[in-house]
């Protein structure tokens, strides 16, 4: 009985946060990016907040639902954008999952955010290289992409920290 309630509650949490993430995801996709291929990835904030608040399993659900439903809404489902998005999300989840199991009590939203951003870009980069542009010259973009990933990771990290603080107050 308790498990049922718990899972129902968890479903609600997943649904709510996924909806929030999808909204951000869709909104962000409507804003033209200053540099092609570079996005702040505000929707990742939701994943990180859910991770620190509710754990990895919930975060994974939120993240994957966001990618799936978000792409259906934008109309990019199964397109290259979707594949890159999914690849990035999976890699982020794996990396933060490992970090979560190893050092849950040491890392805050900031650390996860930076790790997720780097994992995200590396996975997208490799996928782009392997699937779409198998060209050595692409490697010359990598330093820039990683630099941007670290910056967006820190920015999203501080936002996630702030959101998490308020959320904790709210829940209390």
């Amino acid at each position: 009985m308790t498990t049922c309630i718990a899972s129902e509650r968890q479903d609600h949490i997943i649904a709510w946060f996924a909806a929030l993430a999808i909204a951000i995801h869709v909104l962000e996709s409507a804003i033209p990016s200053p540099i092609p291929g570079i996005k702040i990835g505000l929707a990742n904030i939701v994943t990180i907040v859910v991770l620190v608040q509710f754990g990895w399993r919930t975060a994974a659900w939120v993240s994957l639902l966001r990618v799936l439903i978000g792409s259906l809404i934008i109309g990019s489902f199964l397109s290259p954008t979707f594949i890159l998005s999914l690849g990035g999300a999976c890699a982020s989840l794996v990396v933060i999952g490992v970090a979560y199991t190893l050092a849950r009590h040491h890392i805050s939203a900031m650390g996860y955010s930076v790790l997720a951003a780097i994992a995200h870009i590396l996975a997208q980069f490799w996928l782009a290289y392997l699937l779409f542009i198998p060209h050595q010259a692409l490697f010359h973009l990598l330093p820039i992409l990683i630099t941007v990933a670290i910056i967006t990771g820190i920015v999203n990290g501080s936002l996630a920290l702030a959101v998490h603080k308020r959320l904790k107050l709210l829940i209390q």
Partner: peptide, 24 residues
């Protein structure tokens, strides 16, 4: 124990970063 976890962590991150640094 805590320190070793952090060490594993550091290693992981370095491995991640050097993953694509191996262009020939």
């Amino acid at each position: 124990m805590k320190n070793s976890r952090i060490a594993i962590f550091v290693l992981m991150l370095t491995a991640l970063l050097s993953l694509s640094a191996c262009s020939n």
